[in-house]
């Protein structure tokens, strides 16, 4: 987390130290790991996705990841791809995702929000203006999937006050770790499987071997994603790491409630939040 910038008029006040670091510190003090559910902004429509976002902290989300829809999500599996397509059809944009964050911040000042997406919509928006608007709206961290550290100068120079969250993969070489960790803040996102989102499940033994390797290289909290689907897996993840990111299985719950035209039904929001609750129970019971 860099220095805090003066707050422009009408903007959300920054939290000293940053919401992400504070949340992880608080959880550490409580002796438990973080549940980080994911939702795709505007999936299947703006109102439903806003209601899910608002309800997530109450259902047990410790941090929330908001996906920004993109036409060509090359690192994502079919579930997240289709969520993106529904979101785009519903008018989803980067500006729309930022508006959701502003709305959310009206009644929640403490839950950290991380935007996850691809670089091209950010370049089209303008990286400098994007970072300004993130700070102003109350975004805490960024995961830009297709911007590895080697290309980080596209956005990083403008990102003071925002955590730049980096991915580490099972195939990331030991020799490459320092490059990946240089300039990283907030937490490290460990990709639990060799592949795309939502296609396989993480193996507990692999995780137990991989996480200490990252811990040896950084003091940042480590969250596990890409292969975490069930409350049981979320619990296993926070036994070795500091947090668990769950995306595809929550999107699958959402899809299960949509009508034939792909529209939300009265049960959509509750079903997704029930899914979050079940995961939260898993995470909270993990270290008992």
């Amino acid at each position: 987390m860099g220095e805090t910038l003066p707050t422009a008029e009408g903007c959300i006040e920054p939290v000293p130290g940053g919401r992400i670091a504070r949340r992880f510190a608080k959880l550490r003090a409580e002796g438990r790991g973080a549940l980080m559910p994911f939702l795709e902004a505007y999936d299947p429509d703006p109102a439903t996705s806003m209601a899910i976002l608002r309800g997530m902290p109450g259902a047990g989300a410790d941090l929330i990841e908001i996906g920004v829809p993109f036409t060509d999500p090359a690192a994502d599996g079919p579930t997240v791809q289709k969520a993106g397509q529904r979101a785009l059809k519903a008018g989803g944009t980067l500006a729309g995702a930022l508006a959701m964050v502003r709305d959310f911040r009206r009644d929640d000042e403490s839950t950290p929000l991380v935007l996850m997406g691809y670089l091209n919509p950010i370049l089209a928006y303008g990286p400098e203006r994007f970072c300004e608007d993130c700070r102003c709206s109350g975004v805490d961290g960024l995961i830009i999937v297709d911007m590895p550290p080697e290309e980080a100068d596209e956005v990083q120079p403008f990102a003071q006050g925002l955590d730049m969250i980096r991915l580490v993969a099972p195939t990331t070489l030991e020799s490459r770790l320092p490059t990946v960790l240089d300039g990283a803040s907030g937490f490290i996102y460990y990709v639990a499987i060799t592949g795309i989102t939502g296609t396989r499940s993480a193996d507990a033994a692999d995780l137990a071997a991989a996480i200490p390797r990252i811990r040896a290289a950084t003091d940042l909290p480590v969250a596990i994603g890409f292969g975490v689907r069930t409350p049981q897996q979320a619990a296993e993840a926070v036994q070795v790491a500091d947090g668990a990111v769950v995306a595809s299985s929550l999107i699958e719950i959402l899809v299960g409630t949509l009508d034939e035209e792909g529209r939300a039904t009265p049960g959509t929001v509750r079903a997704v939040l029930d899914g979050v609750r079940a995961l939260a129970e898993g995470v909270r019971g993990a270290r008992d």
Partner: peptide, 21 residues
């Protein structure tokens, strides 16, 4: 950096970086 002027580069997810390297 794999750049021709400002163009080109290696804009891939970390998961793909080992393949490219």
């Amino acid at each position: 950096r794999g750049r021709f002027g400002d163009f080109g580069g290696r804009f891939v997810a970390e998961t793909l970086m080992p393949n490219i390297t």
